[in-house]
Nucleic acid binder design. Structure first.
Ligand SMILES: [Mn+2]
Ligand SMILES: [Mn+2]
Ligand SMILES: [Zn+2]
Ligand SMILES: [Zn+2]
Lengths: 131, 131
DNA sequence: ATTAAAAATGCAACTTTGTTGCAAAAGTAT
DNA sequence: ATACTTTTGCAACAAAGTTGCATTTTTAAT
């Protein structure tokens, strides 16, 4: 798993495990509460940053100043850049944010002069567990 | 302008003016640097919160923990709830975030069980001023 | 298996960001 | 002008994020 030219360390294994076990996207804080007793806060920040750069996780924008992270698929790791072109869903009830891996972001036409590099779509509402 | 049943105060007028003068979305920090000498930081937080609730401004999600705000159109103020269904664009070069008022967010089909309340789309790339 | 080099971690100290309670000030309505 | 309501500033605090550096852990080479 960690053949991204990254040292295999206890904290990285642990944080990766937390993501593998999670059924939703995690904020820094979520991870901290799960393992702050074992690993330093700073290490968590740096690990998330590293995972992000290596295409192991991607981040999900939000309006609540809580960027969340979720695992990428193989393609992001092997190709070296992200292509997580799926929709994200945030439930107003349970607060969970999930990847809708099967829902692709529809194409959109930008005005003349704009070049698209990346695109993000986040839908808010009620998730299937909550209603 | 401030017939949203809000008291007309100097700080609110000033912050509204800052938005009217801006050609891009503003983060709390942007506003603070423009008027922290005149008004307290806490007042800016509270004003943004109030404007948001009253449909005067809307917020734009981000992956950098810097929620940005931009003016709404009349409809949000009069109807009492937001319907800013346009795409936002963030330029990787100049860092500015703008409302693409003419670009509507395309429809998307959610999996069974999910109910949509709100939808956000943010595109990254190079803006027309930068290329 | 040892060892040297490279990379990651923990800690401390710090800056920035955001929140809350409360008294003073400003705004609104009569 | 007065009473009432809302907003503001301040202080104190809590939470979030950053940076430099010494120590520890991994990795790669002998
Ligand atoms: Mn995702
Ligand atoms: Mn907008
Ligand atoms: Zn839910
Ligand atoms: Zn630009």
């Amino acid at each position: 798993m960690k053949n991204s030219a990254l040292s295999v360390t206890a904290s990285r294994k642990r944080i990766l495990d937390i993501f593998l076990a999670a059924d939703n996207a995690l904020a820094h804080q979520d991870i901290e509460t799960k393992c702050a007793d074992q690993y330093d806060r700073v290490t968590i920040y740096r690990t998330l940053q590293t995972f992000l750069e290596r295409g192991i996780i991607h981040n999900i924008p939000s309006t609540d100043n809580m960027v969340r992270y979720a695992l990428c698929n193989e393609a992001c790791i092997t190709t070296g850049h992200h292509h997580d072109n799926h929709v994200h869903f945030r439930c107003d009830q349970c607060g969970k944010t999930v990847c809708l891996d099967d829902v692709n972001i529809p194409a959109v036409n930008l005005p003349k002069g704009y070049t698209m590099k990346e695109i993000n779509m986040v839908v808010n509402g009620i998730c299937k567990s909550c209603k």
